[in-house]
Design a binder for these strands. Structure first.
Length: 339
DNA sequence: AAAGACTGCAACCGCCTGGAA
DNA sequence: TTTCCAGGCGGTTGCAGTCTT
């Protein structure tokens, strides 16, 4: 909770990047019931939107951002109050495993819950819960992963975040030597020529981005029979074979990247809700060609997927692998993608 | 009972994106 | 094509309440 305050000329910064909350006369801090009522009544009457001018029109001494946040996270009638139910918690865990810290996307799949609420719940409950279970909350993998080491967050608010621009990986440029003695295989996929990719079980992999945020083509080894793209690679998967004798089960595979990229299959997400992937049912092959219907819930909640669409198939594949080998058995065969 | 530590979460910050001008 | 702006997002902060010593 922030200290209630009224921004005065002395407290106003000259920072031009924050025009909305730094204006003279703008109130900050917790909302009063009176302010809530004014805002709620106004939005019920006039509707959402035009947040910058809304405070003035509604007669509130708040910035537009603050109004929007208050409405979205608290006043909206659809906001569900109360504790996160176990099934909701389970869904959050599953979606986070797939989407990473895409709180708005996760919230879009959990009716009545806001991104802020889910984010808070994750940081205060779920991440600690996973750590107590020996699972890295970022990767959903065992904490003693040999490739990525994470310090457990302190017991305070501090949450260890990746220094990854745009949620990409901070892993080093990979090559065999940097990955130790393990046999490293690098496979590229180009969405324009993406077919026949059948991920072999017990593979470890992650993605590599260059400074321009492009997935990097590093090397190609077709040794494990995965698809090799002869053209310019727009997506790169790095497959690392486990050490001989290692036995990976389920989520214990060294899945490094947890889908931190702005692309994903809408239909795939819908399938998540239908529990195609998470339940006991056999893993179903996603329809990677499908696009969401305009106006569908998937479209509404996954609008940011429209960018970087050239590599989302790779992300789906990554997600698939994260579910473990048993489920992958049905996925390993006859993967076809025809754009 | 008091003080310090810890927790939960509302709210703010700064950046990014897309659309309008 | 460029610039500006509104909206949206993830990360972070800071305080009230709770717990522990």
């Amino acid at each position: 909770m922030r200290n209630p305050s009224l921004v005065t000329s002395s407290t106003t910064t000259s920072k031009s990047t924050t025009p909305c909350c730094s204006k003279v006369g703008i109130k900050r801090g917790p909302w009063t019931p009176e302010e809530d009522e004014i805002l709620a009544n106004y939005i019920r009457r006039e509707g959402e939107g035009r947040w910058r001018t809304l405070p003035k029109r509604a007669g509130l001494l708040r910035c537009g951002k603050s109004c929007r946040l208050r409405w979205m996270n608290y006043l909206r009638p659809s906001v569900k109050r109360g504790r996160i139910a176990p099934d909701e918690e389970d869904l959050i865990l599953r979606l986070h495993r797939l989407l990473g810290n895409r709180w708005s996307l996760i919230a879009g799949r959990i009716p009545g819950r806001t991104d802020n609420e889910i984010k808070n719940y994750w940081n205060t409950h779920l991440s600690k819960k996973l750590i107590s279970q020996g699972i890295d909350p970022r990767t959903h993998k065992p904490l003693n992963n040999y490739l990525v080491s994470h310090s457990p967050p302190s017991h305070s608010h501090q949450v260890t975040h990746d220094p990854i621009p745009n949620s990409n990986l901070n892993l080093p440029i990979s090559n065999s030597s940097e990955l130790g003695e393990k046999n490293v295989t690098i496979t590229t996929m180009n969405t324009a020529n993406y077919q026949g990719f059948a991920p072999t079980s017990n593979l470890d992999y992650y993605q590599q981005y260059d400074d321009q945020k492009n997935l990097q083509q590093i090397n190609v080894d077709n040794g494990v029979g995965n698809y090799q793209n002869p053209d310019d690679a727009t997506a790169t998967l790095i497959m690392e074979q486990p050490a001989a004798g290692s036995s990976l089960q389920g989520n214990e595979g060294n899945y490094i990247e947890n889908c931190n990229e702005d692309m994903f299959s809408f239909s795939f997400l819908d399938s998540l809700m239908n529990d195609n992937l998470f339940g006991n049912d056999q893993l179903q092959q996603p329809n990677t060609n499908a696009l969401p219907e305009q106006g569908s819930a998937a479209m509404a909640s996954t609008q940011s997927f429209s960018t970087h669409g050239n590599i989302w198939e790779a992300e789906i594949m990554s997600s698939m692998l994260a579910f473990g080998n048993d489920q992958l058995n049905s996925f390993n065969t006859h993967q076809q993608y025809q754009p």
